[in-house]
């Protein structure tokens, strides 16, 4: 079985995130890492390989992004993925979801031209753009069923069954491979890369593709081709000091209730 996990290199959410002058995310000037939500996708792919250890299962980590994005692939390799693919091309910068999904779909097709891809795994969304739509778009482009937002994944043969937790009900969805799957942060804690994994990752193969390798025209992607553009970005205002209710004469509870009522919490 051939599994492709799509992973994204995102700016570290705990650091100071910035925009470039053209209002795209600054991906060079800040520390980046493998999107935490994508770690769950890597974990599920690895668990599937471990649960079906009697089969030959290969896990490929795929990323699209500038040079530093290779770190996301390496992290996935450290966790246990077998090989990596890094699509990098200056023309991709500023792509919207449609552009990104096109590049990913073409890359998955190229991976599949050597060995058929049975399963594409995504995290539920990226931690920077938070769109959560790319899995569906890639599924559409590949002509595959999309089975998204899975919290529990079970598989046997070519059958996959997932649980999707909604606000009012939990759905159980069955599908036949090949499919595009996205998993939530409830699907199981992602493993840490072991020391052996860190050392082994160095020797695992990582292929680099450019747009021309994928047969994608530069005009189809990038900021120019994007349907949406960020016009303006404003830094979040600094947190203001809260209101402190001092209770000296027993009126504290009333003051608290009044405050909550004024904000329509009660």
């Amino acid at each position: 079985m051939n599994i492709v996990v799509c992973v994204k290199h995102v700016p570290d959410a705990t650091a100071d995130r910035k925009f470039e002058s053209d209002n795209t995310v600054d991906r060079e000037g800040v520390d980046g890492l493998l999107s935490e939500l994508d770690e769950y996708a890597v974990e599920q792919a690895l668990q599937l390989r471990e649960k079906r250890s009697d089969e030959e299962i290969s896990v490929t980590a795929l990323t699209v992004g500038p040079a530093k994005a290779a770190d996301a692939v390496r992290k996935a390799l450290q966790m246990g993925a077998d090989k990596g693919v890094h699509v990098s091309d200056d023309a991709i910068a500023g792509s919207d979801y449609l552009g990104t999904s096109l590049v990913l779909a073409k890359a998955i097709e190229k991976i599949g031209s050597e060995q058929k891809v049975d399963l594409v795994v995504f995290g539920m969304a990226s931690t920077d753009a938070s769109g959560g739509v790319v899995p569906a778009m890639v599924a559409e482009r590949l002509g595959l069923p999309q089975v998204t937002l899975a919290s529990v994944i079970e598989s046997q043969g070519d059958q996959v069954r997932i649980k999707r937790d909604g606000d009012t009900a939990t759905e159980v969805i069955g599908a036949t491979l090949p499919i595009v799957l996205s998993v939530t942060d409830q699907s199981g804690e992602a493993r840490y890369p072991s020391f052996k994994g860190i050392m082994a990752a160095k020797k695992k193969p990582v292929e680099s593709y450019s747009l021309s390798d994928l047969g994608v025209e530069a005009s189809e992607v990038g900021a120019e081709a994007a349907y949406s553009a960020v016009e303006e970005a404003t830094a979040r205002p600094p947190r203001t000091a809260g209101e402190i209710v001092t209770d000296e004469d027993g009126s504290g509870a009333t003051a608290l209730a009044e405050f909550l009522a004024s904000k329509k919490f009660i």
Binding site: R191, Y192, S194, F195, K196, G197, M199
Partner: peptide, 21 residues
């Protein structure tokens, strides 16, 4: 996660690294 025995040789369950690790 293999962090305790990073300095133990690989054939005995360690990571095969050194004292520095």
């Amino acid at each position: 996660n293999g962090y305790l025995g990073v300095n133990i040789p690989e054939q005995y369950g360690g990571g095969g690294g050194g004292i520095g690790d």
